[in-house]
């Protein structure tokens, strides 16, 4: 049997996971309940499994359009953040150049900048660039705001790569740029996957930025589209819950795919450990 210490740990873990799992299940199950039942028993199993709302949503072309828009914006944000963030961080980690400290600290200032304060100038800039109502209008500001933290994490990760690895590669004829493609990136899958997941989920759930930048219904993300499902006359929470549950799936799939790579110890065997 379990020891006291072990039992305590298991109970604690169960408690913590229930904090996450219970609301999630309630959301998914809520989509099967009637509005009346939702009010009385928000957490229990549905008395009657009503497939109407899930059916309607999954059969709705507009839903798939919202989903696609969100997906496109999130993927573009992830790819751009990874490419720019890793290259930038590599320069900070590997190359000693004049003003690198100043530049890095300047970038870190971006971490402290409150997003809300930037809304007005951001809107004007995006408008002047002529990318309002396009995915870019959301993607570029998201990348801009995500870069500071991703550069910081990338740099920390790159900096702990054994220095002799670069020396050995140089003796073999490898320059800075080749080293980045042939060593730094392949050896950085854990941090790439971590940052990708984080950026993806943030973009997937972003509401404020799409609200400001997207006016055309066709370009709406699911967070904006959610309004459609509240019902015309009364708030139909079951429909909303079904909608939210349906939008969770892609984020979960992305997370599961990335999780496989979020394992440390990939540099094992490079140097005597």
């Amino acid at each position: 049997m379990f020891s006291w210490k072990e039992s305590g740990r298991i109970i604690f873990l169960l408690f913590v996971s229930s904090l996450i799992v219970v609301p999630l299940l309630a959301t998914i199950l809520g989509g099967f309940k009637s509005n009346g039942e939702l009010r009385v028993s928000p957490f229990g199993l549905p008395q009657e499994w009503d497939l109407q709302f899930y059916g309607e949503i999954l059969g709705d072309a507009q839903f798939w359009r919202y989903l696609w828009n969100s997906f496109l914006i999130s993927i573009m944000t992830v790819v751009l953040t990874l490419v720019l963030g890793s290259m930038c961080a590599y320069a900070f980690a590997q190359v000693r150049f004049f003003g690198s400290r100043f530049l890095f600290n300047y970038l870190l200032l971006g971490l402290m900048f409150p997003f809300a304060a930037a809304i007005m100038p951001l809107f004007l800039t995006v408008r002047d660039l002529g990318i309002l109502d396009t995915p870019w209008g959301v993607v570029l500001p998201q990348v801009g705001f995500g870069l500071a933290f991703s550069i910081m994490f990338f740099r920390t990760f790159f900096a702990q790569m054994p220095e002799e690895l670069f020396d050995a590669a140089r003796v073999d004829g490898c320059g800075y740029i080749q080293f980045f493609w042939r060593f730094t990136l392949p050896l950085s899958t854990p941090i790439l996957a971590t940052i990708a997941t984080f950026v993806f989920v943030q973009s997937w759930n972003n509401y404020l930025l799409p609200l400001i930048m997207l006016n055309d219904r066709e370009g709406y993300t699911w967070t904006l589209g959610a309004m459609d499902y509240r019902g015309e006359y009364a708030a139909e929470w079951n429909r909303t819950l079904a909608f939210v549950s349906a939008t969770l799936a892609p984020a979960v799939v992305f997370f599961l795919a990335a999780q496989k790579y979020i394992v440390a110890g990939l540099t094992g065997g490079a140097v005597k450990g």
Binding site: R170, G268, V271
Partner: peptide, 30 residues
């Protein structure tokens, strides 16, 4: 001159093997 143009090879204290490459790729990389 660049290290690779000097006609030298170096063995490091930590070995500095390329962790994501096989032995064959490690040896043939240069």
């Amino acid at each position: 001159a660049e290290p690779s143009d000097r006609g030298i090879a170096m063995v490091f204290q930590s070995y500095a093997l390329y962790p994501h490459m096989t032995v064959r790729q490690n040896i043939g990389f240069g």
